[in-house]
Write a protein that binds this DNA or RNA. Structure first.
Length: 478
DNA sequence: CCGACTCTACCCAGATTG
DNA sequence: GGCGCAATCTGGGTAGAG
């Protein structure tokens, strides 16, 4: 809560879709939908042109295709978006050391901490300059909200969309919030919204009038008090630059439900390996292993096991996840599996061992960082099983190589992108960010003149940084 | 020794966010 | 009838330590 509107919220407009339109001239002004293309994919982001057909994020792809059959459907290219995001975040960093990214396309900035602004006029100036700089560096538009608190700044950027700036003067929050739906408050989603509606509260002013005690009774201590404060326009959460991760998890939804117990076990082990890979990559170890299971009927459960000490050992995590799976009924089929590690320790395994040993010297007990609390049976053959098992029916090499939307280069025709592929052919549109809309040609998938390529800079002379951002060739990205 | 009590850790589900 | 992925937070239950 502050007297000057110096908390800035930036939200890039239809980020993934806008990035694709910038990279592909033929898509500008057209409906574009970015999301998973599998049978169970959902929309990640869509362009404003697609929104006019009723498409929106989190919508099942099949439904989107019915609403907007002529839209371009593309798979997300996270390395590309991350490179653009880094350019944007770099610009934010010039405004203030206090930048809190919420995702690739969104962040809070404390303008006061950086001396970039100290009143409404200077804040507005900084916000407008930022929008110009982002457009210049990336060719993309972003919307800016300015206010005296995070909550109001975020609401402001929402109102500014697309391609705008809204500043809300401190002191005017309550009249602004009062008539709005409770759903605009952070923490009020479908469930809480319905809960409140049943209690007769639909607007923010309803909440303010209900009083704190009533809300606490309805929603519990933490939610109740915070919601009451938010409803008053009261929000003093600071902009926090860096927060360390508290958990790491991976999950997969399968194209068709899994029934075979052995196959399910194999997938859990594979997920455990992937999870540990990321855990170690971030230099962490963790104490609690979590298994997540979504059944055929969408019912979801989690099971967890806490070890005596943190681990980053793939064998330990895999076996713990396997044990947890034993306690789950999989009759009827499994739609999704996930493995996570929480209770992260920011020290490494070596440090941990040193600490455990030091403790052991004092107490006379043995160090046991990798011991399990649950006295699980040692399952030695599990390791070999995963290596010899048959891989799941994944997209073929050609399908991965020629995923729709990905950049390619042809030795004669130059830069282009995959428009579609199938039956041994791949269709490419030859154009690049600075060019006019290009034309389409079709090739055999194994045409030696055609090769995958890195994204080109969106702005003349601008860096993409994609080569650096791309850490490995494997599916699933970094 | 037992029961009541408090504190803490853990477990799990559900909700929310982008 | 269709519903991804990752992370965080909370409420409420249970179990063990003291």
């Amino acid at each position: 809560m502050r007297a000057a509107p110096t908390i800035l919220h930036l939200d890039m407009d239809a980020f993934f879709a806008a990035a694709e339109q910038a990279a592909k001239p033929s898509l500008r002004g057209k409906p574009v939908v970015v999301g998973g293309l599998g049978p169970r994919g959902v929309v990640a982001t869509c362009s404003y042109e697609a929104r006019r057909f009723g498409v929106h994020s989190a919508m099942p792809m099949g439904q989107a295709r019915r609403l907007a059959p002529n839209a371009a459907y593309l798979v997300p290219r996270f390395a590309f978006y991350r490179a653009i995001s880094e350019q944007v975040m770099e610009l934010l960093g010039r405004l203030s050391p206090l930048v809190e990214p919420l995702s690739l396309d969104e962040a809070f900035v404390d303008l006061e901490a950086g001396g970039a602004a100290d009143d409404a006029a200077s804040a507005r100036e900084a916000g407008e300059r930022l929008r110009r700089d982002i457009l210049g560096a990336t060719g993309l538009t972003g919307s800016v909200g300015l206010a005296g608190s995070k909550m109001i700044a975020k609401i402001a950027s929402e109102e500014a969309k697309p391609d705008g700036l809204v500043l809300i003067e401190p002191g005017t929050e309550r009249e602004l919030l009062g008539p709005k739906s409770v759903r605009i408050l952070p923490g009020v989603g479908p469930a809480t919204g319905e809960h409140l509606r049943r209690a007769g509260m639909t607007t923010v002013s309803d909440l303010a009038e209900a009083g704190e005690d009533e809300l606490v009774r309805l929603l519990g201590r933490a939610h109740g008090t915070s919601l009451y404060r938010m409803a008053q326009g009261y929000d003093d959460r600071p902009v926090v630059a860096e927060r360390d991760a508290k958990s790491v998890s991976v999950e997969d939804t399968f194209d068709v439900d899994l029934h075979d117990r052995l196959r399910i076990r194999m997938e859990v082990e594979r997920l455990a390996e992937r999870c540990v890979g990321r855990l170690r990559g971030s230099g962490h170890s963790g104490r609690t292993i979590v298994l997540k299971v979504r059944r055929y009927d969408f019912s979801t459960l989690t099971r967890s096991e806490t070890l005596r000490g943190p681990t980053d050992d793939p064998v330990v995590v895999r076996e713990a996840a396997g044990r947890l799976l034993e306690s789950v009924d999989t009759t009827g089929g499994i739609r999704l599996l996930g493995v996570g590690v929480s209770g992260l320790a920011d020290y490494t395994q070596e440090d941990l061992f040193a600490q455990a040993e030091a403790r052991a010297e004092e107490t006379g007990t043995r160090p046991g960082p990798a011991d399990t609390a649950g006295e699980g049976p040692e399952t030695a053959p599990a390791a070999r099983e995963a290596e010899t098992a048959v891989p799941e029916p994944e997209p073929s090499a050609a399908e991965r190589r020629w995923a729709p939307g990905h950049d390619v280069r042809h030795s004669a025709f130059g830069a282009g992108w995959v428009q579609g592929s199938g039956v041994g052919r791949v269709t490419v549109r030859f154009e690049e960010p600075g060019s006019a809309p290009g034309r389409v040609r079709t090739f055999l998938v194994d045409d030696p003149d055609l090769a995958p390529a890195d994204p080109l800079p969106l702005v003349e002379g601008g860096p993409t940084g994609v080569a650096a951002a791309r850490t490995g060739p494997g599916p699933g990205g970094p």
